[in-house]
């Protein structure tokens, strides 16, 4: 203890993380485009990216804010339709319309998050779950029927919104994953993120510490919705055709399962669970019929054996790992038994 611990400067940590991420994108792209793997692997990789964004964004309101919304797919639908309508209706070339579409999808979904969050967040626990479930369904039903009821030619109802340019690629999907994780991480490690955590921990104490809980609940909720909207926009560019049935209640549950399984409040957990739960059914094609059974069994097993999720509230930090390596204490926590709680990243 007498020797001064080595700490990695922040700029170096950011640089290392950025370099590793860039290596992952470039390497992944090189492998996928080399033709060594079957082409559906690329599709799966994109889908995984989209699911990761959805799971990580739900983790804001579930893991960090401590609420249980059940309408996350609704926000994805809003983002997907907003960006798809923007891309198909404006004459802007797809290469430019796509990034704009993601921003628009995120913004519109974020707005919906505010609108739904203000009434919904007055409630707690199961009441909030039911009200968000209702909102998620309303969004889906509105998308299904708005054309025939109001005579628009916007969503094309059950026939599906067709002709969306398939602009999602491995690179832009995963760049978006990186951006999402970065923004959520930097948000959480700030006074705003701590305010959100304090609401999860103890609302009354948070209030008496001068934290405007209504503001921060709504902020976290709409941030969660906005990133879900971005995931939806990528999903639109991935599918090329949108149908309201893509965003049903089961989709919300699917995302929630990822978050709960990975560990509520752990971004790394959400990412791992999203990867596993998206890749596994694809890898076990023949197993696909039993997917929901496996889901349920997985959930039951996790809740029995590790109620806090696979990673609990542990969050991966390259900085911490490097520091531990240099200080020669990488496995110290294993030797001591259980390690200490998650530190600052």
């Amino acid at each position: 203890m007498s020797k001064k611990r080595f700490t990695l400067p922040n700029w170096a940590a950011y640089l290392i993380n950025a370099a590793l991420f860039a290596a992952f994108i470039i390497g992944g792209n090189a492998v996928l485009s080399s033709g060594a793997l079957p082409s559906f692997i690329t599709k799966v990789a994109m889908l995984i990216g989209i699911q990761v964004i959805a799971a990580v964004s739900l983790n804001i309101s579930t893991g960090y804010l401590g609420q249980l919304p059940l309408g996350h797919a609704g926000f994805m639908a809003v983002g997907a339709y907003a960006s798809a309508i923007f891309m198909t209706r404006t004459g802007i070339p797809a290469q430019l319309a796509f990034p704009l579409g993601i921003v628009i999808g995120a913004a519109v979904a974020g707005l919906f998050g505010v609108l739904i969050g203000i009434p919904a967040l007055r409630l707690k626990g199961d009441y909030l779950a039911i009200i968000t479930l209702g909102f998620g369904e309303i969004i889906r039903v509105v998308l299904l029927n708005i054309d025939s009821v109001l005579g628009f030619k916007l969503t094309n109802g059950a026939a599906g919104l067709q002709g969306i340019p398939k602009t999602t690629t491995f690179v832009n999907a995963w760049l978006m994953v990186g951006l999402t994780c970065f923004l959520i991480h930097t948000f959480m490690k700030s006074r705003h993120g701590r305010a959100v955590l304090s609401i999860r921990e103890n609302e009354i104490a948070a209030e008496s510490c001068g934290i405007n809980i209504t503001y921060y609940k709504t902020l976290a909720f709409s941030l969660s919705a906005a990133f879900a909207g971005a995931a939806g926009a990528l999903y639109a560019g991935y599918l090329g055709i949108l149908n309201p049935s893509n965003f049903g209640f089961m989709k919300s549950i699917e995302i929630l399962v990822m978050v709960v399984l990975g560990g509520m409040g752990s971004m790394a957990g959400s990412i791992v669970a999203a990867i596993v739960l998206t890749a596994a059914p694809e890898a076990l094609r023949a197993f696909d019929d039993y997917r929901m059974i496996v889901y349920s069994l997985l959930l039951i097993a996790t809740m029995i054996f590790k109620p806090s999720g696979l990673l609990g509230r542990y969050d991966f930090s390259m900085k911490r790992i490097i520091e531990k390596c240099v200080n020669g204490e990488l496995f110290a926590s294993f030797r001591r038994g259980r390690g200490k709680g998650a530190e600052e990243a």
């Binding site: 305010a195 304090s198 009354i204 934290i211 709680g341």
Partner: peptide, 19 residues
């Protein structure tokens, strides 16, 4: 006592410094 139990001591005080 109403502390933010799962957060560190430092984070608890930082939340007090929010404003």
């Amino acid at each position: 006592i109403r502390l933010f139990k799962d957060l560190t001591v430092e984070e608890n005080v930082l939340i007090g410094l929010h404003n």
